[in-house]
Design a protein around this nucleic acid. Structure first.
Lengths: 150, 150
DNA sequence: ATTAAATCTATATATTTAGTAGATTAGTGT
DNA sequence: ACACTAATCTACTAAATATATAGATTTAAT
């Protein structure tokens, strides 16, 4: 299961994607729009900034902005920053590789093959999905379009 | 990431799959073979028994046995018992469905579509993988075969 | 100078994870 | 019937993680 923090992060990024190219966006604006506790959101955005996804501006007229186009922010990138490894175990992680302390021998581990398959299935979805996709997938706008067509 | 408990469970089940049809297996035997803390393993096996995967016999000559063929014990079944939902969020879970308290409106949630895709990618691997697969995938026997062929 | 905004530091609480200890119950073989 | 063995149950504990909150500080614009 994805953490609440990660969901908050993705929702916040969606808002920033909507405002992409329109200048800095206030934390308070995002917090209110997505019902995220403001102080918690601060920490999340800071984390995303320190990892190169966002840029920030202090002082009056400041706020947060995407540092790259929505189509370049993949879910895997975001989830790695917020929740850590995407792989189901460290021993098959590409970005957080480490030995599993509960495994006597990595070469003979019976689970590795399955864990790798599982990891790849995840990556196949999460690498390809970007903020662009949740913009398009936003049901609110779909609904509006449907209503217009009706 | 999968919990240590879940890894223990899968490894223990692998042992039980190896001994399938040969009568009860001792907790101590499994614990030692897979280097799992015995008391912790007890709880895990009990949990699997209470959920219909294992059957147990008390007293002398007792132990644990698979209640079904290795090919019928899927990873998804095991992981649901030990770690809970496989889906990345409750709102897209098939076995543990629940509203996400951080979501104002399920219909307009921008993440749902992606979460569903992600869930399906997971299930596609985990439903199809069974204990039978980790028996075959066990590198120890592969190594032996390779050595024999060399 | 005043104001508005992000940033930093510290703290708090609840939940989950991983594990231990000891008593109890139920079967087996003698 | 009895001793033994193995699962089962109950109750803890420690450490890590998740989910926040409070308040002071820094930075920039007007």
């Amino acid at each position: 299961m994805i953490s609440k923090k990660a969901k908050y992060a993705l929702k916040a990024l969606k808002v920033l994607a909507e405002e992409y190219g329109k200048g800095p966006v206030l934390i308070s604006y995002i917090a209110e729009k997505e019902k995220i506790p403001k102080k918690f959101l601060e920490a999340i955005l800071l984390d995303l900034r320190n990892n190169g996804v966002l840029q920030s501006q202090k002082g009056k007229g400041g706020g947060y902005m995407l540092r790259m186009a929505p189509a370049d922010v993949s879910f895997s990138k975001v989830l790695r920053i917020i929740d850590g490894p995407i792989a189901p175990a460290l021993c098959v992680s590409m970005f957080f590789y480490g030995r599993c302390d509960d495994c006597k021998d990595e070469e003979t581990c019976s689970l590795r093959t399955v864990l790798e398959k599982w990891r790849d299935a995840n990556l196949n979805v999460l690498d390809k999905t970007t903020l662009m996709d949740i913009l398009r997938a936003d049901n609110t706008s779909e609904k509006i379009i449907t209503e217009l067509e009706a």
